[in-house]
């Protein structure tokens, strides 16, 4: 574990809580959303009012849970993480052009993934809120709301498949999953993939 010299703490408890709340909510929202969206699934499951309630309540729970993690968790650490994710340096730009460059705790692809995931989450939440509100008040009913909500589902699905491939299947990167579950990763693996984070001596703790 983190005290073991051969392992390094990559993700704090706050970061892991944030990730897994988002991930589990996404799967519930995706599943219930697809039942509401695909006619054959709608017929198979029926109970639309129940599925719709699950979808909406999960969205609310997701927002509340993330807010609680921010409030009660390591806020200063999260701020540093956001800062790390926001910063694209020359190594990142080269790395994205497939030129091998040492990467920080997050490589440039992970930074892009984080930025896209965060923007999609905001757009999902806003369009979902207007779907809910528009059903109650026609002044907030816009034909584009549902197009945006569905379109986001498709692009998120592509992003998710890529993320799962790298986290679960691709041999070179799947060790990262250990970081997101236990918090720590092997030092030699980190040295190979996140050299700027590990550094020549002791790495910065997240």
């Amino acid at each position: 574990m983190a005290t073991d010299k051969s392992y390094l703490l990559r993700f704090s408890r706050t970061e892991r809580a944030f990730h897994w709340i988002h991930a589990s909510a996404f799967f519930v929202l995706l599943g219930s959303g697809l039942i509401l969206y695909l006619p054959r699934l709608s017929e198979l499951v029926s109970r639309r009012p129940l599925v719709k309630a699950v979808h909406i309540d999960t969205a609310i729970a997701w927002a509340v849970a993330l807010a609680l993690v921010v409030l009660l968790g390591d806020r200063a650490g999260l701020r540093r993480t956001v800062h790390e994710l926001d910063l694209f340096d020359s190594d990142d730009r080269l790395w994205l052009r497939r030129i091998p460059r040492p990467q920080g705790r997050f490589n440039a692809g992970q930074k892009l993934n984080a930025a896209l995931t965060a923007s999609f989450a905001v757009l999902f939440a806003v369009s979902g809120f207007f779907l809910w509100l528009g059903e109650r008040d026609h002044r907030f009913r816009f034909a584009s709301t549902i197009v945006l909500h569905d379109g986001l589902m498709y692009v998120s699905l592509v992003l998710l498949v890529g993320h799962l491939y790298l986290a679960l299947i691709y041999p070179a990167t799947r060790h990262a999953l250990r970081g997101m579950t236990t918090g720590s990763v092997r030092r030699d693996w980190a040295q190979r993939h996140h050299a700027k984070w590990v550094g020549p001596d002791e790495p910065m703790q997240p």
Binding site: L36, Y37, L38, P39, S42, E43, S46, R47, R48, P49, L50
Partner: peptide, 11 residues
């Protein structure tokens, strides 16, 4: 997706 969405009100 066929373009249709199936809206129902009962269980």
């Amino acid at each position: 997706p066929s373009g249709w969405r199936i809206y129902t009100v009962a269980a």
